[in-house]
Design a protein around this nucleic acid. Sequence first.
DNA 1: GTATAATAAATAAAGAATTCCCGATTAAGT
DNA 2: ACTTAATCGGGAATTCTTTATTTATTATAC
Lengths: 228, 228
Amino acid sequence: MFTEQNSNYHEKAISERAKLAPVPTLRRLPKYLEYLRNIRVAADAHISCTQIAGALDLVPTQVRKDLATTGIVGKPKKGYPVFALIQAIEEFLGWNAPQDAFLVGSGALGTAILGYEGFRKNGLNIVAAFDNDSSKIGTKIRGVEVMSLEKLPELARRMNIQIGVMTMPPQYAQQITDLLISGGIKAIWNFTPSLVVVDDDIILENAQLASSFAVLSSRLRSRTHNLD
Amino acid sequence: MFTEQNSNYHEKAISERAKLAPVPTLRRLPKYLEYLRNIRVAADAHISCTQIAGALDLVPTQVRKDLATTGIVGKPKKGYPVFALIQAIEEFLGWNAPQDAFLVGSGALGTAILGYEGFRKNGLNIVAAFDNDSSKIGTKIRGVEVMSLEKLPELARRMNIQIGVMTMPPQYAQQITDLLISGGIKAIWNFTPSLVVVDDDIILENAQLASSFAVLSSRLRSRTHNLD
DNA sequence: GTATAATAAATAAAGAATTCCCGATTAAGT
DNA sequence: ACTTAATCGGGAATTCTTTATTTATTATAC
């Protein structure tokens, strides 16, 4: 009576939804995922928007709208099947099949990112690191080999790498961006504060630690003032 | 004829605006700042919204609205005085007087953050690091001393520290949050993926690297699909 | 001086995102 | 079986953010 639970149903529809998903929703999805992965429940457990919202300090309607973008359907009175929900979010973000990526800059930040186990669960698989410091070339950081920058473009092309992560000092940002693009890389995750320019066909996402801190600063500032 | 240019004019008004500033605006302000700091122009140079917008790939009206929240006023046909604009943004964010902060977790990510010179220019001055690894205690990382976690609450109180930065492994997130709060800390910048719960009077900002990557992933995914 | 063009500032309009509301559904208790 | 309460899903309403438009100002060129 039941049709096979094919998690790949509606590839086209998913990509169309992906195009339309609001950025705020995209930014919340990983939070749901993090929460759901950690609540360790029975294989057939369900969870409601009310519960999720309560845990994440959101309103249930927003959670429902967000989850709806992934295509999951819930059951009245029960909620969403936890396991299927995790899968739906992963699939929507493309995190079910981690993408291979190159990282440039094997300093402290690069090391931190290479060492963060979580990324592999979040769709990012860094397969090689690059640096211009000859003393680092040939070494391994967290099991990932550090190579000469010169080898990057050709290797990226040969391995069909789509994603580049930039963790070098900011003054090289534009130069490395261009190098990555020359290797056929399509998306760049920029951890430097530098602003870089790319063509429209390249996806550029700035990690923007300063933006995050600005929100904190502003709140702290206004709160402090209001206590006067 | 001219009244003194007092950059501290209207403290109250600024704090009120700070309360009202939209988060998207707050997140863009550091980008303007980054750009303005790097254009190195004459002391009396002016810059227009059109120029800023062009460089940052935004529309002029939005830039103008954003800058207006800081209280800066521009001149028709000239734009905003660059130096005063930098000051206005810094002041609005509270970055003109860097806040002392404690950092917990002296691993790779903690080291990266301690080593990032930029933060001192962005209102954050990390004065001490804390760890539970006894082999690290007593050492210095980037000139900052690593101390035992036990000392944190009392020291935080004595030094009147307002900000805590969490870069330890995620499993300690809640525990360290509580420890920071017990030391009187008012704002927490959480780099772990863990979600932590705090009272309403505590400011919690999650750095959320995964959220940033989710935006990239989704764009990459939809773009790839649409090429079929 | 006058005209022109560029710009800020204020206001209006449009567009997005969030929240509210209501009907439909379903599990669980009586 | 019936009732009740919880929840989802869709659509409307609201709120927030962005973008467009208009007006006023001012530097610059003539």
